[in-house]
Design a protein around this nucleic acid. Structure first.
Lengths: 248, 248
DNA sequence: GGCCGCGAGCGTGCATACAAATTCCGCGGG
DNA sequence: CCCGCGGAATTTGTATGCACGCTCGCGGCC
């Protein structure tokens, strides 16, 4: 797993000292997901993307001073950003010793997928009961768009729409707590997914499962949709397990 | 809105100005649940207890300066504490407008109970599969202790053991993510429970359900235990709904 | 030669000062 | 009498300085 040892992926190698190049933040990371102030939310988004994408390795320490100079912000918003990441489970906080990017062994991923599957299964039951026709129709539209990307073998865009479908089902449950749990786990899922290169056979199977899921959702068969979604994530676990065993 | 006239439950009324009485924090709140430093963790525990117990009403603003003077700490750890509470869903963060204690109407509680029931149902299945005999035996012990408190009509202690049983089942699932989700939701559950005075009829029904749950757990019948636990919370919802309708 | 104690360096935890944003109150105009 | 507007006060967001705790390396001791 050759991840670059260079901690910063966004800073070009032109300026040797990041402190002399105080670009206040990458404006591209200024998405609407920021919670409070602009700096805090931007720092969360940037660091989260770095961890999820694997730009920083598990076990790496997040030193405040270093990140402050790199991002061009102060320690106060950075500390709050790190705390937010800790609540998402991406980093672990050691008392008086800072934050370390959490490990991601196979058992953790298995537990994560079980939990997400359970959340989605519960949301699926509710979505079939209380979801609006418009919401289900939108999911169907995204599904078909995703199928186009499947035949085109456009994996990144496929995964993006895939996530939107799953999120849409949880949203259709009209249960803000389930949605909150799902949003909390979503970054970790994206991170785990990056561990294994997507297996073509698994991709085909996942598409078939999605076809069945859409049918169950259209029929508003909550029990069937729930039974389909709960193992949906676990089915993909075998690929990750194989990759983890190859990597040691 | 008449939020508590007495801001501090721990500060005796002897000193009119809390700023002149910088008791650094109530040592009783210095429990081990604190995450990082002592001040931050203690502030979290104290504020959380206040919200859960209803000492501060929904919709009340958490003004930083006021709480700082009252707790005798600075704004930095207090802000991190508020952020932790926000991640637990006890307060909501408004950009540039501070933190407000989240509302708790019936639909929110219903969503919360559905979510917690789903998490516990998933954990129940796993606990029956991978839980150790020692863990199940401990749950059985607590169950019997709880039954003693039931016949004694000792509601507070009963609820404490009740929570330990539910937590024990999630722990026995050996799934740290499910446990994390459960711990995240637990304060909100305790808070919602305080809304309604416990109904005797519901108490009897809950005890019968717990008897069935213990039987299913002892038999390691995951499907049955899961089917029992998922509606277990929702059954108690009717009492809260009645209380909410009485209160308007 | 190996083990223990100790001090320097580093990094986090906390406190405080400054700045931006929002809200509320008062005033003038319609 | 109601609405719009401007300024001051309050409150959050950010930056920075100080102090404690931890780690690690060196010197002394067994």
């Amino acid at each position: 797993m050759t991840v670059h040892a260079l901690p910063a992926s966004s800073v070009p190698a032109g300026s040797p000292d990041p402190a002399l190049d105080p670009v206040p933040l990458d404006p591209a990371s200024l998405d609407g997901a920021g919670r409070k102030g602009r700096l805090h939310g931007a720092a969360v988004a940037l660091l989260r993307e770095r961890i999820v994408s694997g730009a920083v390795l598990p076990g790496a320490f997040l030193r405040e001073k270093e990140l402050c100079e790199e991002l061009g912000i102060s320690r106060t918003p950075l500390r709050e950003a790190i705390r937010t990441l800790a609540s998402e489970g991406l980093v672990r906080l050691a008392p008086n010793r800072g934050a370390v990017v959490s490990a991601l062994d196979f058992s953790e991923v298995e537990a994560l997928y079980q939990a997400v599957g359970q959340v989605e299964a519960g949301a699926a039951k509710l979505a079939c009961r209380v979801g609006s026709d418009a919401e289900i129709a939108e999911i169907r539209v995204i599904h078909h768009q995703m199928m186009i990307l499947y035949v085109r073998r456009d994996l990144p865009e496929y995964l993006a729409l895939n996530q939107r479908i799953h999120r849409g089902i949880v949203t259709a449950s009209h249960n803000p707590v389930l949605l909150e749990l799902w949003e909390l786990l979503a970054p970790r899922v994206r991170r785990a997914r990056g561990l294994a290169n997507h297996d073509p056979a698994r991709w085909d199977a996942a598409v078939r499962e999605h076809e069945e899921m859409l049918a169950a959702l259209t029929a508003r068969d909550g029990a069937r949709l729930s039974a389909l979604m709960e193992p949906h994530y676990l089915n993909g676990l075998t690929v990750i397990k194989a990759a983890a065993e190859r990597a040691g």
